[in-house]
Design a protein around this nucleic acid. Structure first.
Lengths: 198, 198
DNA sequence: GCAGTTTCCTAACGATCGTTAGTAAACTAT
DNA sequence: ATAGTTTACTAACGATCGTTAGGAAACTGC
């Protein structure tokens, strides 16, 4: 089983560079020439290794969601509904204003301003975000007794409100709003999170 | 003073068509060919009448903010802080899920996924959104006594929270989330709006 | 040495991007 | 009619878009 010419790039590092570029500029705002420059590869090598632009984008999104974009996971591991909300908001703030990463959220960044030609990408991303709402609502419902929401609260509505706030945070982070301002938003949101009357 | 050949288009209607196109596809997602088709004009006529793409975009934004995008104005006219918040959220929901208009917000739609080449457009839109936060905060501070916020509340934080929620609403509306789901988000937000203890 | 295999890159593909000469057409005033 | 003025349109500009032939280069096994 012969070996052939060895690769001159690191696939992990190349995919990471592609992810960072999409994260900064969004799907449509990123040109193949931007990607080849960032990845340090020629265009034919990119196509051979990762497929066309949309396929590469989906791989970059998967990597994002398994890494810096996985701020939902930490929240789901919390033991009370309130801790879930607080953790979700604050880890989102940190994630969208990271010192070593682009500001904003790759998913939100690529979801808007979409040309009809890229409709399949938009649908893909919308699905991911709606999945998030569902997962969050299910988890809010799952807490037993005192760990859960106070009686009368609507888990779906609260889940969607949380996701809405996080998307707004992502918009502002991408526009340059300071991390501290966004922390204040998260705190303000938690000030009015529903609690049991004591 | 001679007249010359008469115009064969209505400048008002043409600018309106351009606004709707940018609203749907964002600044970068809209090609000049999309605009000429929607406006019913040839490219040279568009350039003669409105200038280049960025100039036309700014005129479209001005028109948007004076018309369907002016949901802040109604809120500022309210007589209490709580009514302001409620009106802002609900008129935003209606505006971003209009039956006769594209879904989403033109400003948010064009603010993300921006190629470095269009940086000037991004700065312009960010400025508009930060202006909104400031205006909202000032108005929240301006209500006298019982009409205003309860003691201990931070007008700036609440203003930014409101804008954050509205931006999240715009993201979801553009992605196809139903109007009723967004109304629920607005209601849920108002359920936890700070009130005086009674 | 010589196949066989895999990756490399230069160069180009057709399509579309935003933009603009250059000219024909339609009006008013003399 | 004719000159003057304004608008409309065809056709093209150079640049960039995403994508791909086609062939040289670098490895393994014989």
């Amino acid at each position: 089983m012969p070996g052939g010419r060895p690769r001159s790039y690191d696939p992990e590092a190349a995919l990471n560079a592609a992810m960072l570029t999409f994260w900064t500029q969004g799907y449509e705002g990123t040109a193949m020439s931007d990607l080849t420059t960032a990845m340090g590869m020629s265009a034919p090598s990119v196509y051979a290794a990762f497929g066309d632009k949309e396929t590469l984008f989906r791989k970059a999104v998967e990597r994002y969601m398994a890494g810096p974009g996985d701020y939902l996971r930490v929240a789901l591991d919390q033991r009370t509904a309130e801790a879930l909300a607080r953790t979700f908001l604050h880890s989102a703030v940190e994630a969208v204003t990271g010192d070593d990463t682009p500001h904003g959220c790759l998913i939100v960044q690529s979801a808007l301003a979409v040309n009809p030609r890229a409709a399949s990408v938009q649908e893909y991303l919308t699905g991911l975000r709606e999945d998030g709402v569902q997962i969050l609502a299910d988890r809010l419902r799952s807490f037993p007794g005192a760990d859960g929401l106070p009686p009368g609260s609507d888990p779906s509505s609260l889940a969607r409100l949380l996701v809405t706030v996080v998307q707004g945070l992502a918009v502002q982070a991408a526009s340059g709003t300071e991390r501290d301002a966004l922390r204040t938003v998260a705190d303000q949101m938690m000030l009015c999170w529903p609690r049991k009357a004591e």
